[in-house]
Design a protein around this nucleic acid. Sequence first.
DNA 1: CCCAAATAGGACTAAACTAGTCCTGAATCG
DNA 2: CGATTCAGGACTAGTTTAGTCCTATTTGGG
Lengths: 153, 153
Amino acid sequence: MLRISKLTDYGTVVLASLVDRTDEVSSAAEIASRTGVAPPTVSKLLKLLAKAELVSSTRGANGGYRLTRAPEDISAADIVDALEGPVSITECSASDSHCAYEENCDTGDAWQRINQAIRDALDDVSLKDLAKGTCTAPKMHFGGTPITVERTN
Amino acid sequence: MLRISKLTDYGTVVLASLVDRTDEVSSAAEIASRTGVAPPTVSKLLKLLAKAELVSSTRGANGGYRLTRAPEDISAADIVDALEGPVSITECSASDSHCAYEENCDTGDAWQRINQAIRDALDDVSLKDLAKGTCTAPKMHFGGTPITVERTN
DNA sequence: CCCAAATAGGACTAAACTAGTCCTGAATCG
DNA sequence: CGATTCAGGACTAGTTTAGTCCTATTTGGG
């Protein structure tokens, strides 16, 4: 568990398909047929990504989307933030969060340290890394159904 | 988003309540009243934790649970694994995962690097850290409803 | 100037997952 | 033997996520 949502997964596929098309716009329909993701879903994703200013949109005939920044300047954290909201593994000290177990809580700020480590990891990986990764694995699967993998140990 | 489930959250509270009771067993009912978590839920959690061998159980009258290991030898990763299954942010290269978007997938192994970083972060934090944390925050809330916090920037 | 192409925004439905409860059985102690 | 407590699983309700669709707005071209 502890995984990104399917939508975020698709989102990276959609963004990856724009990486090598910085000087032209792609319509949602084009992206859908390129990636194989359902058109309404692509459309929804692009709207969210546009709101987060990861892509810019052009309306009207011959309109479409393109990346606003270079792929290396878009981090995985940006994508997750855009599609799932800010990362927070669990939250205690936020301004006005209330909790029924407060007085029995022996848990400290360790979760926040973990949270920061996760954010750092997401910050460290760019869209450029995500698109056209090294793909050293013999056969690379991806997309639709994230599948839980055995613990590596 | 990208958060642990409520159950895992409760799980850490339950385990934290056992930290300073290594030489006695606590029944599920006792733990429930100590932590304020609903008894059936505590029971469910303890069963899962027992299956993962993070706690040992004693049946029968005066039975109960205790930690199997020292708190510093139980990592956050152990807890998450026990209650949510293995961590995997998304999966491509697993043995027999199939994916409809395979041929259109430009995504590399970057997610796996992220995944490993997350696992490392979880491995680095022990139950001892989670219980009785430094609690430097002015007021510490925890439990029931993990609340998304603004990005710190 | 009008029509077609395309995004913007939001409402809505269906499916999946999570949280939580409950019941029955088995083990242990007194 | 009977009370206590865990083991295991079935089940329900609620929430979240995924996905679709409709309407309005903008833009380009004939």
